[in-house]
């Protein structure tokens, strides 16, 4: 396993301060959008699934910001709201989508788990996006664009065989793809120890894929590690497996948490939003939060008024 050391030089620290502000905006936006979504679900305005990223914002924001948004590609799964917002900040498009309105980023047809904008694609079947991501990486390599592809996986999804086929091919063909495992220790209701024999951290190593493992409590740490890893993937055109330990603070979807109160309380100690908020001046933070609150409120109101998509918006044959 590689050790990734990051020590910003003093003149990088001002920049880091600005970045922290950017990260806070994104993380707060994600958290607030998700809380609104859960409320909207409870009030009956949303049907289907709502897998929130609450607790994983540092990972989503740290990783997505390390990418070159003009060309890099993101594949993700059912729990992708955070990555989507970090990628394109399309609050209206996301809320509209999840409320099933035609103002949604996919006209309300895809819903929470099936989102696409520019170079980001999500799908709701565990594991299946992984070979798609490897195929995308192969395409970009052949085209010579220099783009890398990142694919987000959960620990539960490491039970799918196609993931390992994809590890093998990505390494065999030296493809620029970052396998990004968000290990929150639980899959739906099942703890990791009931799903997996052995460790997840080392799984990709047997395919000769460089791997590293980090905690997702500090967005700056995730970001600098991700930058380093993304550079490696791009420069060497090789896959990399980054294992990020995170906490799922919310339910799996909507309100279906079976974990004890104590367990969730102890996870909240690691809330990355809490950690980053402490590093910002209170005044600035309040200003940021107020603006975002208003923005989200407006987006919700707009989605409430928007129409549902019609049959003519569905493609056939």
């Amino acid at each position: 396993m590689l050790t990734l050391v990051n020590s910003p030089s003093p003149d990088q620290q001002n920049m880091a301060r600005d970045l922290t502000e950017v990260f806070y905006r994104q993380m707060y936006t994600i958290r607030k959008v998700e809380q609104n979504l859960l409320d909207l679900f409870a009030q009956g305005y949303i049907t289907g699934t709502v897998h929130t990223s609450m607790g994983q914002e540092a990972c989503d924001v740290g990783v997505v910001n390390s990418l070159d948004r003009s060309k890099d590609i993101i594949f993700s799964n059912h729990r992708a709201h955070g990555q989507f917002l970090a990628y394109c900040d399309d609050v209206e498009g996301l809320i509209g989508e999840i409320m099933g309105k035609e103002t949604g980023v996919c006209l309300g047809i895809g819903g929470s788990q099936h989102i696409h904008r520019e170079n980001m694609y999500t799908n709701g079947v565990q594991g299946g996006i992984v070979p798609n991501a490897v195929g995308a990486a192969l395409a970009e390599k052949i085209k010579g664009t220099g783009a890398i592809t990142v694919v987000f996986l959960g620990d539960g999804t490491m039970g799918e065989g196609v993931v390992y086929e994809s590890f093998n091919i990505a390494s065999l063909w030296s493809l620029p793809v970052l396998f990004l495992l968000i290990d929150n220790g639980i899959a739906q209701s099942t703890p990791k120890h009931l799903e997996h024999a052995g460790e997840l951290e080392t799984r990709a190593m047997t395919f000769a894929i460089d791997s590293a493992s980090i905690e997702a409590d500090d967005v700056n740490k995730v970001y600098s590690t991700a930058c380093e890893v993304v550079n490696k993937v791009r420069e060497h055109s090789r896959p990399f497996f980054l294992h990020v330990k995170a906490a799922r603070l919310g339910p799996h979807s909507k309100g279906d948490d079976t974990r004890s109160k104590e367990e969730i309380e102890s996870l909240k100690q690691k809330d990355p939003l809490l950690k980053i908020s402490e590093s910002l001046p209170v005044g600035l933070r309040m200003e940021i939060e107020q603006k975002i609150d208003v923005r989200i409120q407006t987006a919700v109101e707009k989605a409430m008024l928007a129409s549902h998509p019609g049959l003519e918006q569905l493609r056939r044959v």
Binding site: I73, P131, N132, G135, L138, K143, E165, S166, N168, L172
Partner: peptide, 19 residues
Amino acid sequence: PISEASIAGLTVGMALRGM
């Protein structure tokens, strides 16, 4: 490799990216 799911999956990913 003998990996039919991934052969199809790679094909899909490449098509998504214009190949």
